[in-house]
Write a protein that binds this DNA or RNA. Structure first.
Length: 471
RNA sequence: GCUCCCAUCGUCUAGCGGUUCAGGACGUGGCCCUCUCAAGGCCAAGACACGGGUUCGAUUCCCGUUGGGAGCACCA
């Protein structure tokens, strides 16, 4: 297939939604797969709702995900001349007509019709009145032949369409002269020479009308592919309140972009039994034939699994680069890369699902004093642990070099000295003493990362703490 | 209400009339490993919404029912 050109056309009226992001991903992947181009178009014709802030958020989210564009961003608002010209042409050829029905009149007639149990489409009152430009405030409607069928072969849903009589003569220009969405989309997709329109299934109904517009404009419509919507828990509509939907929020929560991409691409698309897709694989394997036709629920648990998977695979320097901001946030000061820190972070890969979680688990290395988790302290920092901590303190104080194997030897010595007790009796109190928590990577590696001075200081502090609690 | 769309384990899905007592993954439960937490290994439970057809044979095709979704603007 050659000459493939797709586009992602969001309106900058809020956050970058994961549903939109998936649409962008599909468009990008499809274009790459076929050696085509992918364009970005900002649909900002609704001046009241469009904001610069959400446009920036949109761009930031796409960039984070690594979804690339070969053209754009072009703003729909800048295509006004094109849109006006198209409307003028339709008016001239009598394929569109002026309509003076007011919003209120339309509303009243619609209510009547609906009350009678019928579906409302514009009743065509102004259709044959031949109003000229001087007819006062008016909208422009496309003249649809009620006898025709507006159909197309959807690349996901197969044969699709509706009778024109079910659609009615739809509005293409507001009374203030502004072109309406469907008109602008068709004119711009034509202008940008879009070959494949891949978008959410909520546009299925618009497609019928757009097909009519292409015909009225004597133009060949592009191929259409509608992807089923992502729904929330219980198959209900995604709600910003209940469901995590903001791409930027996922970023800030510390998920890896590759994990996010992998998660999104598998919602409503599959390739046999494969679950893990690299960026490159997505670009070579993605196809519309395997897109599902039913709405899919997004499972955050799967994202967590994927995120950990990618966390485990990430090259060291890349991991550190991504993690540093989270570490600094956790420490409350700029954190720099250090060998011991890197070694320790490696051990956290299989214990974390996000960068934020990794940073949290590294916190004890970054701060001066640790706070004991209440439950952990109550369970492990008990009087019985004090002699163990003291003995460990004494022996570790004389230890050199400070490395895991040497530390282990000390632990073994203390263990037999204390009557061959279980290693947990040593490791857990120490773990709480130095990290504040009852869970961490291996105790020897943990102490090695902390360093000798801080380790023995914290062990002493824990012993002290136990003593004061006994009083 | 009207129009259109969809329907396999809790979730994402494989399946494209018979080699399927339906396969994979996440999640869940158990066991192993073990200084904690994980990771890893092994095992287990778990689905073709329902009712009619078509067919020698339906998860796969058709029609209903039920359930869910989307659309019905001088928004995009």
């Amino acid at each position: 297939m050659s000459g493939v050109r797709t586009r992602f056309a969001p309106s900058p009226t809020g956050i970058l939604h994961m549903g939109s992001a998936r649409t962008a991903l599909f468009n990008w992947a499809f274009a790459r797969r076929h050696g085509g181009q992918h364009a970005l178009r900002i649909e900002d014709t609704d001046r009241e709702r469009s904001t610069e802030a959400s446009e920036r958020a949109l761009l930031a989210g796409l960039e984070w995900l690594g979804i690339e564009f070969d053209a754009g961003p072009i703003r729909q608002s800048e295509g006004r001349e094109r849109h006006d010209a198209a409307v003028a042409r339709l008016l001239e050829t009598d394929r569109a007509y002026r309509c003076v029905c007011t919003r209120e009149e339309l509303e009243a007639r619609r209510e009547q019709t609906v009350a009678a149990g019928e579906s409302w489409v514009y009743d065509g009152r102004c259709r044959d009145r031949n109003y000229e430009a001087d007819c006062g405030p008016h909208t422009v409607r496309l003249r649809l032949d009620p006898e025709t069928y507006l159909g197309w072969e959807d690349l996901v849903f197969g044969p699709s369409g509706q009778a024109a009589s079910e659609i009615g003569d739809m509005n293409i220009r507001r009374s203030d002269g502004h072109p309406l969405y469907n008109l602008a989309v068709v004119v711009d997709d034509l202008h940008m020479e879009i070959s494949h329109v891949i978008r959410g299934a909520d546009h299925l109904a618009n497609t019928c009308f757009q097909i009519a517009l292409y015909r009225a404009l004597d133009a060949e419509p592009p191929r259409f592919a509608h992807v089923p919507l992502i729904v929330g828990a219980g198959g209900k509509k995604l709600s910003k309140r209940r469901d995590p939907v903001s791409v930027l929020q996922f970023r800030d929560d510390g998920y890896l972009p590759d994990a996010m991409l992998n998660w999104l691409v598998r919602i409503g698309w599959s390739h046999g039994d494969q679950e893990i897709f690299s960026r490159e694989e997505i670009c070579t394997l993605f196809d519309l034939e395997s897109v599902s036709r039913s709405p899919a629920q997004a499972d955050p648990g799967k994202l967590e699994w994927l995120s950990q998977h990618y966390l485990k695979e990430l090259p060291r320097h890349q991991l550190m680069a991504l993690l540093l901001p989270f570490l600094s946030e956790e420490a409350g000061r700029p954190v720099e890369v250090a060998p011991e820190l890197e070694d320790f972070v490696d051990l956290l890969r299989e214990r974390s699902t996000t960068l934020a979680e990794m940073a949290r688990r590294t916190r004890f290395l970054l701060v001066d004093t640790v706070d004991y988790e209440e439950k952990a302290a109550r369970k492990f920092l008990r009087p019985a642990a004090q002699p163990i901590l003291d003995s460990l303190h004494e022996r570790l104080s004389g230890l050199a070099p400070w490395e895991p194997a040497a530390i282990e030897t000390i632990f073994e010595t203390v263990r037999s000295e204390q009557g061959d007790i279980g290693m947990g009796k040593l490791a857990q109190p120490v773990r709480v003493a130095v990290t504040g928590s009852s869970a961490s990577p291996g105790i020897y590696e943990t102490l090695a990362a902390l360093g000798k001075d801080r380790t023995i200081f914290r062990i002493a502090a824990a012993s002290e703490w136990i003593a004061t609690r006994q009083d």
